[in-house]
Design a protein around this nucleic acid. Structure first.
Lengths: 223, 223
DNA sequence: CCCTCCGCTGACCATCCGCTGAACGTCAGC
DNA sequence: GCTGACGTTCAGCGGATGGTCAGCGGAGGG
C-alpha cells in the first residue's frame, strides 16, 4: 500500500508517516501543493492525504485538479478545526473523507483503512468458487458446509487469488499484492503458502483448487 | 448521539447541522448518495437523515440497500413537497419516518427526538446473539435469564460488536467507535476490555462469544 | 535418456500478537 | 478524607504465525 501525504507542517508529516509506516504502509511525503499535485499525477498511489493549507496549490485545488483529470484515487483531507465550511468544501471538491485537526492517531488509521477497504471494491459480499466460499467481512472460509481455519496470511493469499478467478498470477504479483512493499525475502514463501492452503482448502476428493502454471504462476479456476 | 445527514443542498445541510448540533448532537454531513451509503455502512450512527434527490444513489436506494444489508438504524427521509408518492415510497423502502420540504425546524427536531426515543426502545428485541441479550435502552445485558453487570465501557464495546454481527472489527475500528475521537492511547485497551467482557459474558459451557481473528480483529458471530 | 530447472515440502526458529495480572490515577459517593 | 469503582497503562508470558532453508521429485528440453 503506497500513500502520498501532502502536508507542509513537518512535525505532523513526520508523525503521520511514522505511524502509517508502522501499519505496514509506504508513505511518501510532499511538503508543498504544487509538488504534491505533480507527484500525485505522475505516480500511482492507493490513497492521498491532503492538508488544506499549503504553500503553492491548496488541498482543495489539488483535489479538484485530480478529479478533473479523471484521477479517482481516494483522498482523505485534513481540515482545520475552526473552518466550518471546510468539511463541506472538502467533500465538494471531490475528497472521499475528511479529518479535522487535531486528530488522534487511531482515528486516522481507521479512516485510512476504511478508505482503502472501500476502494478495494465493495467486495464485502461473500464470493465462492465451486464449493469454496469466502467471506471477507467476517474473514471466514468454508468448503461446502465445513468451516476452514486460516491464518491471516493464508487468508490474504487465497483472497488475492479468488478475486481474480481464471487469471494466472505470478509469484511476484502475489508478493506485491499480499506482502509489504519492502519485503525482500525469498519468493519461495508464496510456494510455501500455496502449499499450506492446498492442504487446508482442497477438496480431498476433487481436484486441486489452486492450479500451478509452471513457469508462470498460480490460478484459481472459476467453477 | 451521532447522526448522518445526506443532503446535497449545502444550505439546507448547513442549517440542519447547525440546528441539531445546538441540540447537542453530533452531525456528520455527506453531500452525495454513494458517499452517504458508504458512510452509513462503515460508521455507526444513531439516526440517518436522507434527502431523496441526490447525486449518485438516491435516498430510496440508500435506504433499501441498508435494510437489505440488515442495518436497521432509524431513517428519517426528506421528501419534496410535490412528490405525492414519495411518502409512501419512503416508508416502503424502509424509512421510519418522513418530512416534507420545506419543514420548520422545531418539527424536524421533534421528529428526530421521536425517532431516537422510539429506536432506543425498539432495538431491545433484535439485539440478541445466541442466549446473549442486550437492551441498549436500559443498558442491560443478560445471558439466558441471568443479568450481567457491565461497566459503561464494557457495555459500549459489547454493543459495538453486537451491532455488526459476523463482521471482523479491528482494534482501531473499535477504538474509533467507542472511545473519544481524540483518544490516542494504547490499542491494547481494546484487548483488556475484550478480556473482561469474555470473563463476564461468556457462557461457561459454550464457546467464546467474542472470537479473536488473529491479525485482523474481533468478531461476534450471529447465532 | 539424462540433465537441469522449477516447484513442493517438512523441519526449524525468531518474532509478533494477543492475553493477563498488577498497579496507578481519577472521580464520585459516603 | 476515605473508599471503592472504573478506566488506563504496562510488562511478561506463551502460543500462533511467518519466514528460511535444504533436500526431494517431477517436468521439460536437449
Amino acid at each position: 500500500m503506497k500513500l502520498l501525504l501532502v502536508e507542509d507542517d513537518r512535525k505532523i508529516a513526520a508523525a503521520v508517516r511514522r505511524g502509517l509506516e508502522a501499519e505496514g504502509m509506504h508513505v511518501e511525503v510532499s511538503l508543498d501543493g504544487d509538488d504534491g499535485l505533480w507527484r500525485a499525477t505522475e505516480g500511482t498511489y492507493d490513497l492521498l492525504i491532503l492538508d488544506i493549507m499549503l504553500p503553492g496549490r491548496n488541498g482543495f485545488q489539488i483535489c479538484a485538479d485530480l478529479r478533473e483529470a479523471g484521477d479517482w484515487t481516494p483522498i482523505l483531507m485534513l481540515t482545520a478545526k475552526d473552518g466550518d465550511l471546510d468539511e463541506a468544501e472538502a467533500l465538494d471538491s471531490g475528497a472521499d473523507d475528511y479529518l479535522t485537526k487535531p486528530f488522534s492517531f487511531p482515528v486516522l488509521v481507521a479512516r485510512v483503512h476504511a478508505l482503502l477497504r472501500r476502494s478495494a471494491g465493495r467486495q464485502t459480499s461473500p464470493m465462492s468458487v465451486g464449493t469454496l466460499r469466502i467471506d471477507p467481512a467476517s474473514r471466514r472460509v468454508w468448503r461446502g458446509e465445513v468451516e476452514i481455519a486460516l491464518t491471516a496470511r493464508e487468508f490474504e493469499v487465497l483472497h488475492h487469488l479468488v478475486r481474480r478467478p481464471g487469471q494466472v498470477l505470478s509469484k511476484y504479483d502475489i508478493l506485491a499484492g499480499v506482502w509489504d512493499y519492502d519485503f525482500d525475502g525469498d519468493p519461495n514463501i508464496v510456494e510455501v503458502y500455496v502449499g499450506r492452503l492446498r492442504r487446508k482448502v482442497d477438496d480431498p476428493f476433487g481436484e486441486q483448487s489452486i492450479q500451478t502454471v509452471r513457469g508462470a504462476g498460480y490460478r484459481i479456476d472459476a467453477e
